Amino acid sequence: MTVLSESAAKRRKQLLRFISTDLLGPIAGKMPKSCIESLEKASSYADINAHILDIVPVADARIVRHEVAAKLPPFIRTEAVFGKRNLYLLRDATVSPHSGMAWIGNRIIEESVGSLRRIMGWGDVLHEPLLPARKLLIPEPVVVCHPATYFHWLLEVLPNILLAVATFPGVKIVLPDNPPRYVLDGLTTALGPEARRDFLFTSSPIRVERLVVPQYHNQPEFTPPQVLELLRSEVKAKVVPQGSAEQRRRHGTRIYISRQKSRRRLAGEAEMEERLREIGFSVLHCEELSFAEQIRAFHEAEVVVGSHGAGLSNLAWCEAPCRVVEIFPKNYILDCFAWLSFSRGFDYRYVICDTGHRIDQGAMDAVLAAVQ
């Protein structure tokens, strides 16, 4: 075995970096930086502009500020900037059914993934532009409904599919083979059972004559107000009948979102559930409920308690007044559900555990105090 000196190792590393840069261009996020381009920026290139059939605006740029009475720490943010968002109709483009990533030639369209910052965390899909693409010979426009995690699928992918369907009648929806249950269940609930005839399944990237590319937000932890309005008018209204608001006021429920069947559960949760049951809480395992059942359950909730996780995405279906208590493991805090609560006018509280991934006694006492 040859052992290099430190200086020799540094020279070899510099040489490899030089070769990589010379062959591929600057590297960003484990990819050649020149491969990731904003479509609008790259539209100045004749070879890219030839692929753009239409750009349809769907949301204007805006700044959203939430006025919250409670004094909050800096990591719970109440202000966000949302850039304008479009739908792009492209000619002769390629797309992945697994990630929604779209590309023209060797250029990945940044809007199809949100931002370079987001794609840097997609280590398992960065190879997709290198895979052989199957040509799909159909005249209708195509949009991909990729199976993101539940939070991102509900608050990003599904709204974009609804916008594409409303803007381009007859659009076909491409899904990967064997998508998660919530994807098919949610699409059927939102679009109706007849929409299944417009589903196309594939396991590999496809090259299509007309591709609809929704523009994804570069900060997905902030849900735009228009998205919540769209989900409530186009999805929830089909599940919760008119006049149910009065029934909800009479029979409001208190629910705890259990993660005991999740691979990212917090230790101590069984005791937390038992203590909440004693004061009238119901325990929900969201993964066991249909999409419509989750909408109904959260519509009726007046208090929602849960550790940080996908189940709290269903706050989109709750009605004010509603109190939300979110439990964070130590050293992991993300304010996406705080933002969701502020957007809906809910009373948001949070509890941080002191002992890593365990709901300790102090956290349990704090939760009980917050819901009493």
Rank of each mutant, 00 (worst) to 15 (best):
P321V: 10
Q242E: 10
S99F: 00
L90Q: 07
T94D: 02
S5W: 02
G105C: 04
D347G: 08
L276D: 01
V212A: 02
P26K: 10
N218A: 13
L87W: 03
R296H: 12
V304F: 13
D177A: 08
D335T: 02
R248Y: 10
A164I: 00
M120W: 07
G243V: 09
T94P: 00
G192H: 00
D54Y: 05
F281L: 09
P241Q: 10
H308Q: 09
V56Y: 04
K71D: 12
R264N: 11
H127T: 05
M272V: 06
V174R: 00
E110A: 15
A166S: 10
L136P: 08
L72I: 03
M120A: 12
L163C: 07
G268A: 10
P205K: 04
T189F: 04
G192D: 01
T189V: 14
G121P: 07
P193C: 03
R65S: 14
A190N: 03
A370P: 07
P329D: 09
H308N: 06
F82Q: 09
Q247M: 15
V305C: 08
V351H: 00
S204N: 10
W103R: 03
Q372M: 12
I52G: 02
R107H: 04
Y182I: 07
T202H: 01
E221V: 10
F291W: 10
R259C: 07
P214G: 07
F75V: 15
A320F: 02
T2W: 11
K172V: 00
I295M: 11
R344D: 01
V64E: 09
A292E: 15
H308I: 06
L24W: 02
L155A: 05
V235Q: 05
H152Q: 07
R263A: 13
D354V: 02
P73W: 07
A8M: 13
V171F: 03
T149Q: 12
A59Q: 13
I173D: 00
L334C: 14
E37T: 02
T167F: 00
A267K: 15
L23K: 05
A267V: 11
P321D: 11
L162W: 01
I333T: 11
K30G: 08
H251S: 15
T2I: 12
A245E: 15
K172N: 00
G252S: 13
